Computed example of a mutant assay.
Amino acid sequence: MRPEDRRAAEHDCARLIALYANLNDEARWDEVAALYAEDGVMYRPTAPDVGVEGREAILAAFKARPPRTTRHVCSNVVIDVEGPATARGTSAMLLFTSEGAPLVGSFHDRFCLTPDGWRFAERRGSLIFK
């Protein structure tokens, strides 16, 4: 893989992480779900052992949530490109809600290149401090 292709993949995957946070905070669920591959899997930080499989199921899970005001702050993003169509990433997450104390956690992501660009193949969240 050429260095410029690796950097482009790293950038695109890091952008997905930031876009996910922003769209999530704006409750734009259709667009959040579209960031996943069709067969992608989501593990919420509050339920790290329960996978939600498939883009449609992920969309339904987001739409079933009660409305709330949130602000996700993601940092320490590191993307490791494994090949021309796969990558892994980690990031730190800080979640502010109108409901209580901030939550601190992380995401461990797997990415895949689709005809529509890079998407989450798996997004696995976990909480460190609750």
Rank of each mutant, 00 (worst) to 15 (best):
M1C: 02
M1G: 00
M1F: 02
M1E: 08
M1Q: 01
M1V: 00
R2Y: 08
P3V: 01
E4Y: 05
D5I: 00
R6E: 07
R6V: 02
R6H: 06
A8D: 14
A8W: 06
A9F: 04
A9Q: 09
E10A: 03
H11M: 10
H11P: 10
H11G: 10
H11C: 06
D12V: 01
D12M: 08
D12E: 15
A14M: 07
R15D: 15
R15I: 06
R15C: 07
R15T: 09
R15K: 12
L16V: 01
A18M: 04
L19P: 07
L19M: 10
Y20F: 03
N22I: 00
N22R: 09
N24Q: 09
D25A: 01
E26K: 06
E26L: 06
A27P: 05
R28V: 00
W29M: 03
W29D: 07
W29Y: 09
E31Y: 09
E31K: 07
V32R: 11
A34Q: 13
L35V: 00
Y36A: 06
E38K: 10
E38G: 12
G40N: 11
V41W: 14
V41S: 08
Y43V: 03
Y43N: 08
P45V: 00
T46H: 12
A47I: 02
A47Y: 05
P48V: 01
D49S: 05
V50W: 09
G51S: 06
V52H: 11
V52P: 10
V52T: 03
V52L: 05
E56Q: 14
A57L: 05
A60G: 08
F62D: 13
F62Y: 13
F62S: 11
F62V: 01
K63I: 02
A64I: 01
R65V: 02
R65T: 03
R68E: 12
R68N: 08
T69K: 13
T70N: 10
R71K: 08
R71N: 14
H72S: 03
H72W: 06
H72F: 03
H72K: 03
C74D: 14
S75R: 12
V78M: 13
D80N: 11
D80L: 04
G83F: 02
P84W: 13
A85M: 11
T86I: 02
T86Q: 13
A87R: 05
T90P: 07
T90G: 10
A92T: 12
A92C: 12
M93V: 08
M93A: 12
L94H: 15
L94I: 09
L95R: 14
T97P: 11
S98W: 11
E99N: 13
G100F: 07
A101I: 05
A101Y: 14
A101V: 09
A101E: 15
P102E: 15
P102D: 14
P102R: 11
L103Y: 14
L103Q: 15
G105E: 10
F107W: 09
D109Y: 00
R110G: 01
R110I: 00
C112S: 05
C112P: 08
T114R: 02
T114H: 04
D116E: 10
D116T: 02
G117D: 04
W118C: 01
W118N: 00
A121M: 08
A121Q: 09
R123G: 02
R123C: 03
S126L: 09
L127K: 15
I128A: 14
I128V: 14
F129D: 15
